[in-house]
Design a protein around this nucleic acid. Structure first.
Length: 425
DNA sequence: TCTGGGGTCCTAGGACCC
DNA sequence: TCTGGGGTCCTAGGACCC
């Protein structure tokens, strides 16, 4: 229905953006590694479902769902342990195939990427043919199913790949974009989640076509100015976004769910030091440091508050990040004395800047001066962190650590899984 | 029986400056 | 004495995405 016209000449108005998305990625990898799992409902994870196979999705099992609920929905559901190293390797291999057809590849996550083949269609043929070749090669060389949407804009390509799933290809002819979107649910649009969907539904808007017909002013009243303008542009197929091959991270963070723990120094101190240690290592590894430290505290009833401070100089030393985070957490406790239990702690560092080692050392010393006049411990701490980073580089993350840091939180998510979720800084 | 971890962007109000 | 207006930075909270 939405077939490419087959022209070989490529102009600006042509559909040259690909969005490629590996299907049920973690679960598909498990089925690839163990043929006995193929064709069966499986879930990766345990306490919580990280990914479900299509056979499991047919029962209503979804990612993020508590394992217990998943088992209720699908009694024969089989849980399998995660082969995290394999996820990374196979995800990389699949995305690398995109790179064989164009240098303009924007990786979104471990299993998803955009590509623009406008400049290379003369080498490899029309975008639809490139997409088919990529799908065939990922299947043959990596062993995994991948769905691809091909369209004139990122937004349309992304919707195309969602519609194409599982294991499909959808090419949206530029002349047929409006017809294609007309009856699709607004929830497929980038930026429309549960809250916005509900607001729109209340106004009687359920399809992208209806959204496109909505007066801009009422849309902005409903969802806010920026979101309204973006949504209107997307509904009208005016997506201004281009492929960005390398985006700098704007923040780096870490969090830890605690179940239900007393809101006390002996609990949050060690946890915050562990989180600060993780973030500090990642930042220093990339010669980055950040000025703003934000702490998030979630209470037992899942309400959460944040506290942030912006320092005059960027920091990356574990001990300083930890101290700032502990100060912020104490201020939360002062503000909410009636909250006796917490369920999650998080630290995030933003306002990131690249600094070379000398600057960093100077900056850290300076930050410490500001926090504690008369001392100059910052530089020493930086040296300690550097030494620790070096030991870890040779012997692994657990080889060394601060004595006051808990190395492994109870019922913690494996570090390998954390690393999968980390963005390249 | 109450969802883990890592991110981005926007809003609104206040402080502060010119 | 009362009166504006604009810009930037910071903080806290939310929605959303993978």
């Amino acid at each position: 229905m939405f077939c490419h016209s087959g022209r070989t000449g490529v102009s600006l108005a042509d559909a040259t953006i690909l969005h490629a998305d590996l299907d049920a990625f973690y679960a598909s990898v498990e089925q690839l590694l163990d043929p006995a799992l193929r064709g069966r409902p499986i879930a990766v994870g345990g306490g919580v479902v990280l990914a479900a196979s299509y056979e499991a999705k047919a029962f209503g099992v979804r990612g993020g769902m508590p394992g217990r609920k998943a088992r209720e929905l699908c009694p024969q559901l089989q849980f399998v342990g995660g082969h995290f190293k394999e996820y990374q390797r196979l995800g990389d291999a699949a995305i690398a195939i995109l790179g064989d057809y164009t240098p303009l590849v924007e990786r979104i996550s471990i299993d998803e990427a955009f590509a623009d083949v406008a400049g290379t269609a003369h080498l490899f043929g029309p975008p639809a043919a490139i997409a088919q070749a990529i799908r065939r090669r990922v299947r043959e060389e990596v062993g995994l199913p991948i769905s691809i949407g091909v369209a004139r804009t990122k937004h349309l390509a992304k919707i195309g790949s969602q519609v194409a799933k599982p294991d499909g290809l959808v090419v949206i002819d530029p002349a047929l974009e409006t017809a294609f979107l007309q009856d699709l649910p607004v929830g497929l649009m980038w930026g429309v989640g549960p809250v916005t969907s509900a607001k729109l539904a209340e106004a009687g808007i359920r399809t992208i076509g209806q959204l496109a017909d909505m007066p801009g002013q009422s849309l902005e009243r409903l969802v806010g100015q920026a979101a309204g303008q973006k949504l209107a542009a997307l509904a009208w197929n005016r997506d201004p976004r281009v492929i960005e091959t390398h985006r700098r991270a704007r923040s780096a963070g870490a969090q830890s769910a605690l179940g239900r723990k007393p809101f006390e120094e002996r609990v949050f101190g060690p946890t915050l030091r562990l989180l600060a240690d993780r973030i500090g290592s990642r930042l220093r590894d990339k010669s980055l440091s950040g000025r703003t430290v934000t702490v998030r505290v979630r209470f037992a009833d899942l309400r959460a508050v944040t506290r942030a401070v912006t320092l005059p100089v960027p920091v990356a030393a574990t001990a300083i990040l930890a101290e700032v985070a502990e100060d912020l957490t104490r201020s939360v406790r002062r503000d909410f004395p009636q909250e006796r239990f917490i369920s999650l702690l998080a630290i995030s560092v933003s306002h990131l800047a690249v600094v070379d080692g000398m600057q960093l050392e100077f900056g850290l010393g300076l930050a410490d001066e500001i926090r504690r006049p008369g001392t100059r411990r910052g530089a020493a701490r930086w040296q300690a962190d550097l030494a620790m980073d070096a030991v870890r580089g040779r012997f692994g993350w657990e080889a060394i650590g601060y004595g006051s840091v808990v190395l492994e939180a109870p019922r913690a998510v494996p570090n390998a899984f954390r690393e999968l979720a980390e963005k390249e800084l």
